[in-house]
Computed example of a mutant assay.
Amino acid sequence: MNRHIHMRMIVVWIGVVSLGVGMYVSKVESNAATYIHLASSYSDDVVGIRQLIHKREQVLREGTWIDWTDWISPSSQSYFQEQKRWFDDAICYLDRGSYRLQLDKVETTTLGTVAYLKQSYMHHGKQVKNQYSLIVKYDPQKRHWVEVEQPFYQKKTTWGTLKVERSDLLRKEHVYQDAIDKGRAYFQQKLDWTPKPIEIKIFQRADHLAQSVKPSLPNWVGGWNEANQAIKLVSEANTSSEWEKSGIVHELTHQVISDLTHDNAAYWLQEGAAMYYEELLFPASSIKMRSEKIWSRAQLEKMNLENLSNQDAVRFYVSCREQYRQLLKDIGEGGMRYFFEEIRKYSRMDVDSSEKIQVCNQRTNRSLQKVFTIFKKRY
């Protein structure tokens, strides 16, 4: 599936960290609008950045995704894919014509030129406001400013790239390293997965995660991964290292299953595998539930996780894990590898998961039928 989630067990909101040393900025409030005055040498840049912000607002209110692609830097393919999903969701989720985006200030930092933005929109008549920031740069080939991605402190590692919103989170590299090392070694040995460079983004706030995923993201979501995107996780002030390790393995599992199935696995199998291997590699994360509370595969196939309440979401996760556990008992990891080979024959669908739930259910069931005689009566 396209959308994969790890739950936030504790919700704590913390403030935004200021990045770097800014250029001189003064503000004048007039009619609820913020005007930015900078030294004359920066005025052309600010005009260009304002044009970029205005274009994003205009496209979200009136345009299509293709209208926006020219205004995103091609330097990060994962960010490009993330914004495509964000845009597709926003078009459906936001009340038509309600989107507003305002440039608050611009700073030069060690990370680049950072634009601080105020965003607002309506959803079913209710106003939503938040603030976020973007690295922007002038593209001489396009001859206008483009957005790069959110400001991250970055570190190259043996497994890929670690990106964090707060520089102090780089000190937790060993936590993420432990999770990635265990996960990569296990999946390579047991599922014949070929490791590839991994990108991890650690956010300090859940609303910053949502800005990287989609406006409709449920507030209990603490991690995310989609095909061709970065692994994302929220690390708040009191987030434990063990929770982060299990979260990384959960999201890495989604990446592995997407790779092995061309993103065609049923939602229940995707979440079941993520929960199962998270518990297997880091048992402290396990959630228990009475057997009579476990939903059947047929019931799970009819559900969309993101539409469930917090309580039902937990039940969904545990039910998926137990269904995957039973599947492994029936066919073993060797049998699972055959299943991956079969379902990989289907082409990848680059659409929102809600648009392909039924198709993925069908492809999963057909692959299980074809490969495993034991499933003929069940499917």
Rank of each mutant, 00 (worst) to 15 (best):
K182A: 11
D192H: 15
L209N: 02
R171L: 10
S216L: 03
N225G: 10
I202E: 01
Y176D: 05
E242I: 12
L170C: 05
R205D: 11
I180G: 11
N238D: 11
H250A: 06
F187N: 01
A210M: 02
E236C: 04
A227W: 09
I231S: 02
L217G: 04
Q204K: 07
I180C: 09
K214V: 02
L170F: 04
I248A: 06
K245F: 10
D168I: 12
Q189P: 05
E199T: 14
H250I: 06
I200C: 04
V249R: 04
G247I: 00
G223P: 09
V234A: 03
E199D: 14
K214L: 06
P215K: 00
A237M: 11
D207E: 14
Q229V: 02
D192P: 08
Y176M: 11
K172P: 00
S235R: 01
E251V: 03
H208E: 13
K232G: 07
N225T: 13
I200L: 14
V221H: 07
F187E: 03
P195W: 08
P197H: 14
L209R: 02
V213P: 01
Q177L: 10
Y186S: 10
H250R: 11
G183L: 01
S241W: 08
W220A: 06
Q189A: 15
E251C: 02
Q177I: 09
A227M: 06
Q188T: 15
E242Q: 13
N219T: 06
V221Q: 04
D181W: 13
P197L: 13
A227L: 11
T194N: 14
D192W: 14
S246A: 14
K214S: 13
A210Y: 00
L169W: 08
T239F: 02
K196D: 14
N219H: 11
E251N: 05
L191C: 13
I231L: 12
L209K: 00
E242D: 14
L217F: 05
E244N: 13
W243H: 12
N228C: 07
A230Q: 00
E242P: 00
K214T: 04
